[in-house]
Amino acid sequence: MKKLALSILSFSMVIAASGAYGHATLEQKEAELGSTYKGVIRIGHGCDGQPTLKVRVEIPEGVISVKPMPKAGWELETETGPYAKTYEYYGKTLSEGVKQITWTGSLKHEHYDEFIFRAKLHKTLAPDQTLYFKTTQECGTGENAWIEIPADGQNSHDLKRPAPGVHLTKPSEHSH
């Protein structure tokens, strides 16, 4: 009986692990306030067997100085706009910046890829909150919109299409 329980447990862990790749996720799920964050959006499959043709990532308020990494074979576009408030950044006052990044290309359903950007997680954001980067995968005849944000106290695993998130922590003593 013990062996059966272990087999069921390990089988369900394999299922859970493979299910995690069904979502658009961020590789680094925790970051310090005021740090430069390398956001790696992971796309694990297409839409119902179709290739992904476009990956669109919305940048939340308080994430500034966004620089997406170009991908070979993919077209890269950024959309800029005004911030809800201004941010001090290296002696400058920033009132607008990148609000959305779009990569256009082709990723087969059977393949996995990562879409990368760097950004500053401004020190005026509140610690112990999660920032969500709404991510939409567009395919030939459909899309996977990973844009659901959990309500207070709700587990993001309960959502059908959770947005990738990064949990903000207080800056460590050695940060500057």
Rank of each mutant, 00 (worst) to 15 (best):
L94I: 14
K160F: 15
V14M: 14
I41Q: 05
L4P: 01
F133W: 10
A5C: 01
Y21A: 04
L107T: 00
S172P: 10
H109E: 14
L26W: 03
S65P: 00
T36P: 06
V166R: 07
A126N: 10
M69I: 06
E61D: 10
E138K: 12
A126Y: 04
T136D: 01
L26K: 01
I101P: 02
C139T: 09
T130D: 08
H122K: 00
D158N: 13
E114V: 14
V57L: 04
A151M: 13
T169I: 13
S7I: 12
L107I: 01
V98K: 10
L33I: 01
S35W: 04
P162F: 13
Q129C: 00
K120M: 05
E88M: 14
E143W: 05
T86G: 06
A145V: 05
H167N: 01
C47R: 11
R118G: 11
V63P: 01
K108M: 07
Q154P: 00
I59V: 03
K134D: 06
C139L: 07
Q50R: 06
K120N: 07
H167C: 00
K134Y: 07
V14C: 10
K67A: 09
Q50Y: 12
I41W: 10
P162V: 11
K134F: 12
C139H: 04
E30L: 06
K134L: 11
K29Q: 13
E110R: 04
L125W: 00
A16K: 03
G165N: 09
P51G: 00
K120I: 07
T104A: 08
I43C: 02
E75F: 08
S65Y: 04
S18G: 03
T136I: 15
T102I: 14
Q100A: 09
T169R: 12
R42D: 05
Y37Q: 10
T136V: 14
R118C: 08
I8E: 12
P162M: 06
G49A: 08
F115C: 01
E88W: 15
P82S: 15
E32G: 08
A5L: 15
T25E: 06
P164N: 06
H157N: 15
F115G: 02
K38V: 15
A151H: 13
V40N: 02
A126L: 09
M13Q: 06
M1G: 15
Y89K: 00
H157S: 11
P150A: 14
Y90M: 14
L121M: 05
R42T: 08
E61Y: 09
E79T: 14
C47G: 01
E77L: 02
